[in-house]
Amino acid sequence: MLTVPRLGDLEMAVLELAWSAHVIDVKEAHRRLGEPRGITSNTVQSTLERLFRKGLLARERIGHAYRYSPTLSRDEFRAQAAAQAVGELRGAQASGVLAAFVEIAAKADRKNLDRLEAILSRARARR
């Protein structure tokens, strides 16, 4: 599984564009993202290059230019990034920055759950 790297705002916007357009090149990315943001074509190009190096975009040379496509779907990216972030938060749980409804690391031990179910049923019956 790919470790999802941390992304900046522009990287995220380029990735979003790649997901919606499926395949993009520097010109297209600059026209749709660079111009409205007032950033140069070189900045857009280096952002695409960074995403390629991070493994989030694949590229193919067509003529003189590269065309980029996402290596993960939006849903796959979200799922992996969320799992990774939750894992990191769990690691930091000792710092007190997180309170989970049921502890994230808690394993559903069937025997234990059955016993608790029985307690719950008895309490409901008493009502």
Binding site: M12, A82, A92, V97
Partner: peptide, 12 residues
């Protein structure tokens, strides 16, 4: 690190 993970979670 936890703060960054929290930002990532909000981003996705």
């Amino acid at each position: 690190r936890a703060h960054r993970a929290c930002c990532m979670l909000r981003r996705v």
